Simulated assay, not measured.
Amino acid sequence: MHHAFPVEQLTALAYVDRDANQVRSRVLRIVNDLASVFSLAEVEERVGLVITSRDSSGFAEQGVDNSDVYATLNCPLGSGRLTLGWATRQLNGGGWELLGVLATEKLVRNPKDELEWAKVWAINVPKGYDDPWMGSGDQVSYLRYSKQLGQEKTDSLYFAGLAMVYSIGVGKLR
């Protein structure tokens, strides 16, 4: 089955190579910053979330070779991974842009009793300077990601990590 895509949405792909590389770079920076926050001794002791980024030596040892997997996650409530997917979004000026979707996935059993990865939560990552965000509609929360924010940035990353733990253990974040 073939779908027609609105031409205006396709314009988001006019510079797809450059834009996708910008998003990938930004996603990797977010993942590494999340791993740093959760490797702090007091946070690691309280929460127990271990984020192994694709940049770390332990990642290769886990045998993960899928290029869209950016990290593995282990916490007291289970295991998961962070993967990068894609979407487009309409800008305030009416144009469209490519958007990365950094999804938290966990292993679940499907109706055939087979294990498969299910997306349970996500951070939307724009290519530019806008803050990444979670949720949609009136339930949006922003990942405060400016270098100048200091503790607010760390707190924002901390709560994003807690949302990952919740989504792995309890299910989809509402």
Score class of each variant (00 low, 15 high):
H3G: 08
A4P: 06
Q9S: 14
L10F: 10
T11N: 10
A14G: 10
Y15V: 12
D17G: 12
R18C: 11
N21R: 15
N21I: 08
V23E: 06
V23K: 05
R26E: 13
R26I: 14
R26C: 14
L28T: 03
L28Q: 11
R29Q: 15
I30G: 11
I30Y: 10
N32C: 04
N32L: 01
S36G: 12
S39I: 12
S39D: 14
S39W: 11
L40M: 08
A41S: 04
A41N: 03
E42T: 02
V43S: 00
E45L: 07
E45P: 02
V47I: 14
V47A: 05
L49N: 05
I51N: 05
R54W: 00
R54A: 04
D55S: 07
S56K: 05
S56T: 06
S57Q: 15
G58L: 04
G58P: 00
G58T: 02
F59H: 01
A60R: 00
E61Q: 04
G63N: 04
G63M: 02
G63P: 02
N66P: 00
N66H: 07
D68R: 13
Y70Q: 05
A71R: 02
T72Y: 01
L73N: 00
P76H: 05
L77K: 13
G78M: 02
G78A: 03
S79N: 07
S79T: 08
G80Y: 05
G80V: 07
R81S: 05
A87E: 09
T88I: 11
Q90G: 08
N92C: 10
N92G: 15
G93L: 10
G94C: 10
G94I: 09
L99T: 10
V101K: 07
L102H: 06
L102K: 04
A103F: 09
T104N: 05
K106V: 11
L107F: 03
L107K: 08
V108A: 04
V108S: 04
E114Y: 01
E114G: 00
L115W: 03
W117N: 01
W117G: 00
W117H: 00
K119M: 06
I123P: 06
I123L: 15
N124E: 13
G128K: 12
Y129W: 13
Y129Q: 15
P132K: 08
G137M: 14
D138N: 15
D138E: 15
V140N: 10
Y142D: 04
L143N: 01
R144K: 07
Y145I: 01
K147F: 10
G150T: 03
Q151A: 07
Q151C: 05
K153W: 03
D155Q: 14
S156H: 12
Y158D: 13
F159H: 15
F159L: 14
S167Y: 06
G169Q: 02
G171I: 09
G171R: 12
G171N: 11
R174W: 04
R174A: 11
